[in-house]
C-alpha cells in the first residue's frame, strides 16, 4: 500500500504541497487533478522519491519510497532520454538497477511489445514522433518493473491519435492490475481512474470517486458522466456507449 502521511514539500517561494494524507491500494488507479500550480507534479515527484519530505512521509509497503520501486514518466519525454538508441535507453535503467544481462533482452522486448514499438529498437529516440517518444519513455520505465507507475501529464503535448495509443497502454496496464497514479488536464482521461485526488493550492481538497465528483457542480467531467447527469441517470463510470446500450 502507498501511504502519504501529512507530507509537506514547499519549493522556494509559495508553490509545493502541504499536509497531504491519502492511501493507494495495490492495483488501484488514481488520478490527481487540479489547476496548473496546484501541486500535482510536486506530489508525483515526491511519490517517486525525488523530493525529500520537509514534514511527514510517503511510504510504499511501509518503507520510504524510492525510484527502484516507483517509476515516473514525465510530460516531455525528451527530459528522460540520454542515449542515442532506444535499446541503449531501455538498457541504461536496467544497468543502474543491476539487472542480469541475460534477463535484459526479455524485459526490453516485453516492454516494447506492450507499447507496440518493437520496430524502434535501433532507432534514435530523437527521430521518433512525440507520441512514439512518449511510448518509449513509458516502455523504458516499465522494463524496470516498478511496483507503482506514475504518469505526469504524459499526453499533454500529444495529438488525439497519439493520446489514444497511450490510452490503450493504460487500459492494458490496468488489466494487469498495475498500481497507477497519474495527472492530467483532460477530463476524458479521468475515466481511467478508480479515484480522484483533487488538489487546490498545494492542499488535498477531496479524495473521491469519479461518481462522487460528478455529484458536485463541476463541469470538468468525462462526457459520459456529463451525459448521465444531464439524463438524471444513476452515475456510473462507464463509457457513453455502454450507458446507451444499457437503456
Amino acid at each position: 500500500m502507498l501511504s502519504s502521511n501529512q507530507f509537506t514539500y514547499r519549493h522556494v517561494g509559495t508553490s509545493g504541497v502541504s499536509n497531504i494524507s491519502f492511501t493507494v491500494q495495490p492495483g488501484e488507479c488514481v488520478v490527481v487533478i487540479g489547476e496548473n500550480g496546484s501541486g500535482k507534479s510536486t506530489l508525483l515527484q515526491a511519490i517517486a522519491g525525488l523530493l525529500p519530505a520537509q514534514q511527514g512521509q510517503i511510504t510504499w509497503n511501509g518503507e520510504a519510497v524510492s525510484p527502484q520501486k516507483i517509476g515516473i514518466v514525465f510530460q516531455h519525454p525528451d527530459h528522460q532520454f540520454i542515449t542515442t538508441s532506444v535499446l541503449d535507453e531501455m538498457v541504461f535503467g536496467l544497468e543502474n538497477l543491476k539487472v542480469e544481462r541475460s534477463e535484459m533482452e526479455g524485459r526490453v522486448r516485453e516492454a516494447l511489445a506492450l507499447v507496440n514499438m518493437e520496430w524502434t529498437l535501433h532507432a534514435h529516440p530523437q527521430q521518433l514522433s512525440g507520441g512514439e517518444k512518449q511510448r518509449i519513455a513509458i516502455a523504458a520505465i516499465l522494463a524496470m518493473q516498478p511496483e507503482v507507475l506514475l504518469l505526469d501529464e504524459v499526453t499533454a503535448m500529444l495529438d488525439p491519435q497519439a493520446r489514444e495509443q497511450i490510452y490503450q497502454i493504460i487500459k492494458q496496464l490496468k488489466k494487469q492490475q498495475k498500481t497507477i497514479i497519474y495527472t492530467t488536464h483532460l477530463t476524458e482521461e479521468y475515466a481511467f481512474a478508480d479515484r480522484c485526488l483533487l488538489l487546490e493550492k498545494g492542499e488535498l481538497r477531496q479524495d473521491i470517486t469519479l461518481e462522487e465528483l460528478a455529484m458536485t457542480e463541476t463541469t470538468a467531467l468525462p462526457f459520459s458522466l456529463q451525459l448521465q447527469r444531464a439524463c438524471g441517470a444513476p452515475l456510473r463510470n462507464i463509457s457513453w456507449e455502454e450507458y446507451i446500450e444499457s437503456l
Partner: peptide
C-alpha cells in the same frame, strides 16, 4: 482526414441514427 471526433459529436450522431 483520420481525425477523431469528440465524444459529444460521436454521441450526437449515434443517437440521431438510433
Amino acid at each position: 482526414a483520420q481525425l477523431l471526433l469528440p465524444p459529444v459529436v460521436r454521441c450526437f450522431h449515434d443517437i440521431s441514427k438510433r
